[in-house]
């Protein structure tokens, strides 16, 4: 009897573990199957076509891809230096009394759902962008800024963790040779924690590119490639969030599924690079 339970339990656990793999394979398959219409209709032009006109049954993903790339790039450009600054502050500069409360509040803020960041962006940041840069305030720029603020706590916390892996004794050795704090940070801590820091940035990039709610509020969902950052724009997740419930033809649906598939493949690749190339090397070191 107990041997039977033993066997059943071990099979049950193994079954669920394998089911997780099958589930992921299933997700890819379903997204692909549903994309077939669009893939057959547009081929590779789907990714390079600039026109997204549901009424004409014409779907080109380039404006959404462009928006995803530019808003994520903006977010990274703004968040990376701030995250490094916050991480240096938390790991090397802050007095012991501040380290823990500030560190914990940063981690807690990383747990706040992105929909809240989006809502804050809409009500408090859109007017500021409108006043300073002109336009209607709903724009690529606003999306980039809100996205950067949303990924900042995550990035800062992970960068700090990576920097904290540097052994004290290594830092002390550099101080013992007459190094300043900055000397120790740039010559010892950053080289030592390099893989972890880069890994966490790429992971943040992977998350930012798939982020929906923080940007949906403030981007405008306009399928147009504009080099003016104060113009409304769209991104892949923003398009999905706005149009999935509106799609009324099978080609429209299929195009949205192809966008989903494309987004999943891109995120999967970026996150894999972060996790397996950089963060695993860090673990091995």
């Amino acid at each position: 009897m107990s041997i039977l339970i033993d066997k059943l339990f071990s099979y049950a656990t193994k079954f669920v573990a394998i089911a997780v793999l099958l589930l992921v394979a299933w997700i890819f398959t379903i997204l692909f199957q549903n994309s077939i219409d669009s893939i057959e209709a547009f081929g590779f032009d789907f990714l390079t076509e600039t026109k997204w006109a549901p009424n004409l049954e014409k779907f080109g993903a380039l404006p959404a891809i462009y928006g995803s790339v530019v808003s994520t790039f903006l977010a990274m450009v703004l968040a990376v230096p701030l995250a490094i600054g916050v991480a240096i502050f938390l790991s090397e500069l802050a007095p012991a009394k501040l380290k823990s409360p500030v560190g914990v509040s940063i981690e807690l803020l990383a747990a706040i759902p992105s929909v809240i960041y989006g809502m804050w962006g809409l009500f408090y940041f859109v007017p500021i962008v409108r006043d300073i840069f002109g336009g209607i305030g709903i724009s690529m720029l606003t999306a980039g800024i809100v996205l950067s603020i949303m990924i900042l706590p995550f990035m800062a916390a992970v960068t700090r963790d990576a920097m904290n892996t540097t052994p004290d004794i290594l830092k002390e050795s550099a101080y013992a040779l007459g190094g300043t704090k900055w000397d120790v940070i740039k010559d010892i801590i950053i080289p030592y924690a390099k893989a972890g820091i880069i890994g966490s940035f790429i992971l943040a990039l992977g998350r930012a590119i798939g982020e929906t709610m923080a940007v949906t509020f403030v981007m405008g969902n306009v399928h147009k490639i504009s080099f003016d950052l104060t113009e409304p724009a769209t991104s892949i997740p923003v398009t999905l969030a706005n149009e999935f419930t509106e799609a009324d033809t099978s080609l429209y649906y299929s195009s949205l599924f192809e966008l989903s598939l494309f987004l999943l493949v891109i995120s999967f690749t970026i996150i894999s690079i972060a996790k397996f190339y950089f963060l695993r090397r860090q673990r091995a070191a």
Partner: peptide, 20 residues
Amino acid sequence: DISDIMMSAPSIVIGAFVYA
């Protein structure tokens, strides 16, 4: 490994999958 990736994967895509 796959779970690690799925933890950071875009959640809207899961919505699309469940829709289908």
